[in-house]
Simulated scan of single mutants.
Amino acid sequence: MSPTPKQARTHHRKAAPRDRTRNVTSWRVEASWDHRPNNPVVIRTSDRQRARRAYRDLLAKGAYVILQKHTGWDRWTTVDEQNGAAMLAEAAGGRR
């Protein structure tokens, strides 16, 4: 007679010792404009390409943008930081 499912599962594999910190692959994009500094845009995503695309789009709109990577336990590391308004002014000044 075969064992019942409860009898067959008396041994459980020990969990592998590794970092179980949640959301360590998250990216955050923060953007603000000079005319509304108290109302920033914050985009959080686990997709790096979506974060980079949002970063470029907000730069093109003239925002001061910060791209950050999550390092665990609510700590963020700045990956890139640009001033979109200055970049647009420089591009407009170079065309004249």
Rank of each mutant, 00 (worst) to 15 (best):
P17V: 07
P17R: 12
P17K: 12
P17Y: 12
P17A: 11
R18T: 09
R18H: 12
D19G: 06
D19V: 04
D19A: 08
R20L: 09
T21E: 15
T21L: 11
T21F: 09
R22T: 14
R22H: 14
R22E: 15
R22S: 15
N23W: 13
N23H: 14
N23T: 08
V24D: 13
T25R: 05
T25C: 03
T25L: 03
S26M: 15
S26T: 12
S26R: 14
W27G: 01
W27Y: 05
W27M: 00
W27A: 01
R28P: 00
R28A: 00
V29P: 02
V29S: 05
E30V: 08
E30S: 04
E30H: 02
A31F: 02
A31K: 03
A31S: 06
A31T: 04
A31Q: 02
A31I: 04
S32K: 12
S32C: 11
S32D: 13
S32R: 13
W33V: 06
W33Y: 13
W33L: 06
W33G: 04
W33M: 03
D34Y: 10
D34F: 09
H35V: 04
H35S: 07
H35W: 12
H35C: 04
H35T: 03
R36N: 05
R36D: 07
R36P: 00
P37Q: 06
P37Y: 04
N38P: 00
N38K: 10
N38H: 11
P40N: 03
P40Q: 02
P40F: 02
P40K: 03
V41A: 14
V41C: 12
V42Y: 00
V42L: 02
I43H: 11
I43Q: 07
R44S: 13
R44H: 13
T45M: 03
S46Q: 14
S46G: 13
D47L: 06
D47N: 13
D47M: 04
R48L: 00
R48D: 00
Q49N: 09
Q49I: 03
Q49R: 09
R50F: 07
R50I: 05
R50L: 11
R50Q: 11
R50W: 07
R50C: 04
R50P: 00
A51Q: 00
R52M: 15
R52N: 15
R53I: 01
R53P: 00
A54N: 11
A54H: 10
Y55C: 08
Y55K: 08
R56C: 05
R56L: 05
D57T: 11
D57E: 15
D57F: 06
L58P: 10
L59V: 01
L59R: 03
A60T: 07
A60L: 07
G62L: 05
G62Y: 06
G62T: 05
A63K: 07
A63Y: 08
A63S: 14
Y64R: 11
Y64N: 11
Y64C: 08
Y64G: 03
Y64L: 12
Y64M: 09
Y64W: 12
V65Q: 09
V65Y: 09
V65C: 08
V65R: 07
